[in-house]
Design a binder for these strands. Structure first.
Lengths: 170, 170
DNA sequence: CTTGGAATGTCAACAACACTGACATATGCT
DNA sequence: AGCATATGTCAGTGTTGTTGACATTCCAAG
């Protein structure tokens, strides 16, 4: 690996795109792109008392209305204390509604209110606009590759969470 | 847009991959993948008194040895106070060396020490291992698409910073 | 040579967001 | 009745980011 060639790039296959240099470029692309990815919603949120964590909560509640706190916890990968701080402010501010479960009364099912949906729209419109431009500039084949690589990069649990969400969409 | 079809997907072109549903999947893929992307270095760093910010600083100093503080500031996109806190600990701990510029003595040129290079190796080995697996699983064409989309997603300034780094590599 | 501005460093205060640990409450299940 | 689960809450801590203010050093222009 000291020669800058990945240890996987041995046998005569066409694996030259696995040189350390190529990998490093992928890493840096990921870093810079993620900054762009979050930039627009962050700008909107900075004017309010909310941050990226609120955005994520609102996004996934909108995505899966009625989801439980525990489910959201697993998707977001944070502690319940961390999520609770965010949910509390969202509920206080009337953006999220928490309903006690019918089958299991310990569970809280989360829904966006009208105001919550409005914020979600505003944030995801901004984020989608950038994604749309990137997708349009890159073309369908590049987009397919993009998704393939990202999926391969996820942790296993996150990949299945992602697949579940993906399949439930439309 | 209320019909779930992107406003860009009007004229008869093949732009169905720009539906809001497709864009949302891209957004979620980005979110979950970035978690995987940072997971391994984060795990290593959590045992030390360092975090993701230290990783980023060490990465880019290694990438462009002798870079100035101001240059690093622009690449990382944080305030000098924030970067300075990180750099100070790295210098105190003997991972980074700060040399006063010869041409312009106001500038500080940053270099990794032997220990700094060791940490950088450890962190980037972990990150590259995941990237390598993802690239290998996805294949060269997917990787090309991945890079194309990420580049299109960057802010303009970040895109040029990325290109400069990319071109300087090998 | 003086002055203005640029590059850097430092101090203080603060906010967002994550963490751990401990504990309380209500509920479900055996 | 007793244990496990789901949720909420309090207290403390750490990392990373922010502003604002100010000092130092040095280059460059007048």
């Amino acid at each position: 690996m000291a020669d800058g060639r990945s240890s996987s790039a041995q046998s005569g296959e066409n694996l030259l795109f696995l040189t350390d240099e190529q990998l490093r470029q992928g890493i840096e692309a990921m870093f810079f792109a993620y900054r762009g990815f979050t930039a627009d919603p962050d700008r909107i949120l900075s004017d309010m008392a909310y941050g990226r964590a609120h955005h994520r909560a609102v996004h996934f509640i909108n995505r899966a209305p009625g989801t439980t706190v525990n489910n959201l916890l697993n998707i977001l990968g944070v502690t319940k204390q961390s999520l609770n701080r965010v949910l509390r402010t969202l509920i206080e501010d009337g953006l999220v509604e928490s309903r006690i479960g019918k089958a299991d009364k310990r569970e809280r099912h989360l829904f966006l209110t009208e105001a919550g949906r409005a914020l979600e729209q505003k944030l995801s419109d901004a984020q989608r606009a950038r994604m749309r431009m990137a997708f349009r500039d890159a073309g369908p084949e590049a987009v397919a590759g993009f998704r393939t690589v990202l999926e391969a990069m996820m942790d296993r649990e996150m990949r299945s969470a992602y697949s579940r969400l993906k399949d439930s969409g439309t």
